[in-house]
């Protein structure tokens, strides 16, 4: 795949940054001629991944969230969301629909939503080191 453009951002794990980060990534990706639906998909997956860093990875502390968004000539967007937080002990279990370690008002649907609105989802995590979520989406665009 041939990379044609890349965005990198680092920001604090404050919940006020949830809307900023999903809007920034979708605006950057929109250089690939996209439908409103596809832009919405990107906003949704970024929002899920970033919220997980804030709610789970850094819990009651503030850490840094690292996002890379790469755009490929073939019409693919790859988004990487990384944290240096607590890590996930059992990734398989965490990815199960409706599984949440927190309960209360979390629905446990974050990973399911990321999966259904993208084409590829990879989760790499190490307890005490952090988590990297990589999402790929093929853009069909308005010509579809």
């Amino acid at each position: 795949m041939k990379k044609i453009n890349e965005l990198k951002m680092v920001f604090d794990s404050r919940s006020v940054n949830e809307s900023f980060s999903r809007v920034a990534v979708s605006a950057f990706s929109s250089q690939l001629d996209m439908t409103v639906e596809e832009l919405g998909d990107i906003k949704t997956v970024v929002s899920e991944a970033v919220t997980n860093c804030i709610v789970h990875a850094y819990k009651n502390t503030i850490g840094k969230i690292y996002i890379t968004c790469s755009v490929f000539e073939e019409g693919i967007v790859r988004i990487t969301v990384r944290d240096r937080g607590c890590g996930i002990e059992d990734v398989e279990k965490a990815r199960e629909p409706l599984y949440t370690s927190v309960g209360g008002d979390r629905s446990g649907l974050g990973f399911s939503v990321m999966e259904s609105f993208s084409d590829k989802l990879r989760v790499r995590s190490k307890v005490g080191v952090g988590t990297t979520v990589t999402i790929e989406k093929r853009i069909c665009g308005k010509t579809k």
């Binding site: 809307s19 919405g40 949704t44 929002s47 899920e48 209360g104 008002d105 979390r106 649907l109």
Partner: peptide, 13 residues
């Protein structure tokens, strides 16, 4: 204007 899975938590609650 936008909702992620946090909206599901809101409705379930």
């Amino acid at each position: 204007t936008f909702m992620d899975s946090s909206g599901v938590g809101l409705v379930m609650g």
